[in-house]
């Protein structure tokens, strides 16, 4: 049983205290939905959990180890941010090839694209894709690492109903394999997850 636990987290952005005395814990196989208005600190929370932001008060434990001190923590999570990590002037196939080097892992492009039914786009330039299609490809970064934690920042934005369902299915399957997911959103999607917190005071 693995657990991600946050104790008394305070985090400043500039002079604003965006995360105020935050406490929660998630166990393996659970998904946490983080709600909150714009600027309420959803992205900040995920960037703190991904160790990108290191100046905060309070403690974050994963498996009873502080994430700041755990050298292997970087291999345990995948963060899908709002930036797509795609180069606009290159084709989808070439972008996937570049990811292969970054993640040090080879996966067939067709395997990655078929999940969201995007196989026909393999030779298209990213600049000709719609925002939703880019988002789907960006979400497939999850395939490149075998992590136990998924941090998804607004993953449902731009996705149509069909692709949202595919993503939901992905999250459920991951939960069944004891994965932990944290999803942020600021609109009511009518989705049901095991846990929910609201960052609005």
């Amino acid at each position: 049983m693995k657990e991600l636990r946050i104790e008394d987290l305070n985090c400043y952005r500039g002079s604003h205290l965006v995360l105020k005395r935050l406490n929660f814990s998630i166990n393996s196989g659970e998904t946490l939905l983080v709600r909150g208005d714009n600027g309420s600190g959803k992205t900040t929370l995920l960037r703190v959990l991904s160790n990108y932001i290191r100046s905060y008060e309070g403690n974050i434990y994963f498996n009873e180890l502080k994430i700041k001190e755990d050298k292997n923590y970087k291999n345990k999570f995948t963060f899908i941010g709002q930036k797509n990590s795609l180069k606009d002037n290159l084709s989808v196939k070439k972008n996937l090839k570049l990811w292969e080097f970054l993640y040090n892992r080879k996966i067939l492009p067709i395997e990655i694209l078929s999940e969201f039914n995007l196989s026909q786009l393999i030779d298209d330039d990213v600049s000709s894709l719609s925002d939703g299609q880019r988002k789907c490809i960006s979400i497939q970064k999850l395939r490149f690492s075998e992590s136990i934690l998924w941090f998804l920042d607004e993953p449902f934005v731009f996705l149509d109903e069909k692709n949202s369902k595919i993503l939901m299915k992905k999250i459920e399957d991951f939960n069944k394999n004891n994965g932990i997911v944290i999803v942020t959103t600021n609109i009511d999607l009518g989705l049901k997850f095991q846990k929910e917190i609201n960052l609005n005071v």
């Binding site: 930036k83 797509n84 990590s85 993640y103 970064k141």
Partner: peptide, 9 residues
């Protein structure tokens, strides 16, 4: 474009 996130991780 966000690739630095991956590089840093």
């Amino acid at each position: 474009d966000g690739n630095l996130d991956i590089i840093l991780q």
